[in-house]
Design a binder for these strands. Sequence first.
DNA 1: CTTTGATTTGAACGCCTGTTCAGTTAAGAC
DNA 2: GTCTTAACTGAACAGGCGTTCAAATCAAAG
Lengths: 196, 196
Amino acid sequence: MARTQGSHSELTAPRIRAAALKLFARHGYAAVSMRQIAKDVGLQAGALYNYTPDKQSLLAELMRAHMEDLLAARAEAASAQLAPLEALAGFVRFHIGFHIERPEEVFIAYMELRALEPDNFADIEALRRRYEDELEAILRRGAAAGVFAVEDPKIATLAVIAMLTGVNTWYRAGGRLSLEEVEEIYWGMVRRAVGA
Amino acid sequence: MARTQGSHSELTAPRIRAAALKLFARHGYAAVSMRQIAKDVGLQAGALYNYTPDKQSLLAELMRAHMEDLLAARAEAASAQLAPLEALAGFVRFHIGFHIERPEEVFIAYMELRALEPDNFADIEALRRRYEDELEAILRRGAAAGVFAVEDPKIATLAVIAMLTGVNTWYRAGGRLSLEEVEEIYWGMVRRAVGA
DNA sequence: CTTTGATTTGAACGCCTGTTCAGTTAAGAC
DNA sequence: GTCTTAACTGAACAGGCGTTCAAATCAAAG
């Protein structure tokens, strides 16, 4: 069995994912061809099919990996026994920090949902809902404890996430504000928005 | 001079725009072909070129029309002499009402910016900035008057707009909440978020 | 050094792309 | 009823699409 060690595949696979991530984020899934991805990696288009069954799976895998990273990182950062206010602060800072570090993945995850075939769409959507449920649970706990004044926890969840994810539309590393300052400003707005 | 009245072009032009709007919103600009648009209208692809110089202009015109509608509707609804709190309430209700009525235009305006060639991109971006400046002016006036507690008016502007526009991701006509209820919930969150 | 098989090439497949344009159709003007 | 011309068709253009696959390449195992 040759090429089990030093095989190119262990290097090529992540390079293909990186190229696809970059190009999908920049131009959109439909506007990027397999030949463009291959060229970016330094391969012929046919070689990509050693690593993905088709273009759709390449996209779906990028999105699935991102959402699973998100849930795993969140599981590590969260602590269920925190009081609602501290839990919310933790969520806000986590969300901003995680998303700001992965602008390409986030862009794709929000923009290319419509490019997913039904099965893949359902999978990704389920992962997203699991993440949203974490914030919703915090808001419900806080509302039940009388610490938050949220009229509709479900909508407050979506509103807060939309506001936080919006950071990615303007934040640039090395810009006017540091990550910590951004987290502080948004935490202030979220805290007041939920009436805490 | 034949066909000056009863000409098809006065009917065909808006039908082409409507078809392009629907298809671009549903599948994305890059994923929609001129033949698909033509088929939706009931024409051959070549006939589209009596109404648009090319596919790119068709997209750019849809986006420009939407942004100009937005600014015109806003100009009509706004009244500069309102106190900051009332002005903000007016902006929030206007934004939600306007955007909820035009889900396809809004979707395209936010998702297809990257599909625009540089000149078109700059045009649309300038229109968007003009709209954002209206909210920013309200927040600055309120902050100066001590009515609002916004640490960074520019970021608060983007945060509020992101939150409000997020309504379009979940709102469906005939759903659990009426437009008025949605406006009320979001106005509550925005009012508290800016410390009013 | 030969063998093995993972990896990649390069050409080909059928189909679709945006756009052009000579020719056809048909509505209104005279 | 003829003329004019806007509106549209249908075919063609050159090129790109996702995907397949026999053949070539080449690193490691024996």
